[in-house]
Amino acid sequence: MSPTDTTKPAKVAKKSPALKTSAAALNKAAAPNKAAAPKKTAASKKPKAAAAKKPRVMAAPKMSSSQSLDVDDHKVTVGKSFSDNAKMTMRNINVFYGDKQAIYDVNIDIAKNEVIAMIGPSGCGKSTFLRTLNRMNDTVEGCRVEGEICMDGEDLYAPKLDVVELRARVGMVFQKPNPFPKSIYENVAYGPKIHGLADTRVDLDEIVENSLRKASLWEEVKERLHQPGTGLSGGQQQRLCIARAIAVSPEVILMDEPCSALDPIATAKIEELIEELSQNFTIAIVTHSMQQAARVSHRTAYFHLGKLIEVNPTEQVFTMPEHQLTEAYITGRFG
């Protein structure tokens, strides 16, 4: 159990009353709406039905007066959550830590070979959501996921699915670079070794070199492959972790604020890398930096207090957000 994970629900809980009171003044008018709003009907379990109901608004949106800054009023994600070319589909996702709910009813698709960014104020559940995609939440005690997550039509939470296989297909890069206390070579070779991907030493060498090249780290480390990975700089460590993740040729790579611990130059390198990787991989990236989301992603999803508020092409989110909350966030009114 990581400490960050367990504290998140607490943060959510702590934050909400403060936000509510500040937003309350803005929303006197929305009060009746609030009272009438049912807590997302249990009947809408069928994802198809929910998707069909959803209006696909393509035209430039206008702020509707029914939108409010009180997240409790928020019921339906605005924007384009769904894709015809979906790699992963998520329907009615609710995540609980013990009694506390961290994610409320999230519906979204991730398209093939796209880079989707998830933004939102800290504690909004974006990292939690990301971790449900390769079931890393399984490692957190008391964490429960409801809803349906499919990759290529296969239910990720089906009882007979093996998480080992899933995680080999959905790789992950973490907030803080976490190279194993082994050599650079061993770090990259770890995945292929445990999965038995290389039959010979030559194969393994090839996988390691290719992965390091793809992570544009090869030139920097080829002379010292057998020195400890922890001796690299922060940015190099993070690229090593990316190399480690792609060494098993995953289909999707999840990145949880991969640059938050890095300096601007290292960050620029990683962002460059993400762009290159997007040719071969589907990438979901959580970031606290709106600029980064704007730079690297094709679509952007905005989370707020565990709810998915808006999903739209990145350009649109940062120029013409559909939802007041999104606008408030990107204009820096909170976050």
């Binding site: 093996d162 080992v164 296989e165 080999a168 297909r169 038995g196 991907l197 090839e206 996988i207 290719n210």
Partner: peptide
């Protein structure tokens, strides 16, 4: 480097 599908088979093979 071998194809992803090949990888997947190998992984599946090692699971048991």
């Amino acid at each position: 480097m071998s194809k992803p599908v090949d990888h997947l088979n190998k992984i599946k093979h090692s699971l048991r």
